[in-house]
């Protein structure tokens, strides 16, 4: 089982911080806006919802090292395995023969850290590897697609 590159922790940290900032801005604006509208129940709901969301994002931030420790992937000759989650632990297996295509994506934060995220699609669902380095992403793509071709031709 391989771990993700080290600087994915930074990516998660940045994205958690951005989420918290955006949530605080939106909810402060909304709470101020609602104050002027005299909406009885909404004025309770918004602060509670806002606090919960911010706490959720904070928990995401704190749990980064644990998530990092548990997010692993492995590519074997016949299957791809992905492990995820610290509290809710998921292990998914996708046989190579079922793989339809492999997507490589890069958002702004990932680009800053020169990382790529990989999504493996079967004909029914998709599985994500949160971040890999550039050469690793190329490797995975070529390896998985080659193996998928072989597996399909062998059938």
């Amino acid at each position: 089982m391989k771990k993700l590159p080290d600087n994915v922790k930074k990516v998660w940290l940045y994205s958690a911080i951005i989420t918290i900032i955006v949530e605080i801005i939106i909810f402060t604006a909304a709470i101020i806006g609602v104050k002027y509208l005299d909406w009885k129940y909404v004025s309770y709901i918004l602060p509670v919802l806002g606090t919960l969301l911010v706490l959720g994002a904070l928990f995401d931030m704190i749990s980064i090292p644990y998530r990092y420790a548990f997010h692993q992937y492995a590519i074997y000759d016949d299957r791809v395995e992905i492990k995820k989650g610290f509290i809710f632990r998921d292990q998914a297996t996708v046989p190579i023969a079922r793989v339809q295509n492999v997507d490589i994506e890069q958002g702004p934060i990932l680009r800053h850290e020169k990382l790529y995220s990989i999504t493996i699609h079967t004909s029914a669902d998709s599985h994500e590897i949160a971040a890999v380095t550039k050469e690793e992403s190329e490797n995975i793509k070529t390896q998985v697609m080659r193996l998928a071709m072989e597996a399909r031709n062998a059938r």
Binding site: G85, F86, I87, F88, R89, D90, Q91, A92, T93, V94, P95, R98, T122, S123, A124, D125, H127
Partner: peptide
Amino acid sequence: IQSMTFHSSVF
């Protein structure tokens, strides 16, 4: 089976 997932939370 296209994929199988095994979930088990800490609890």
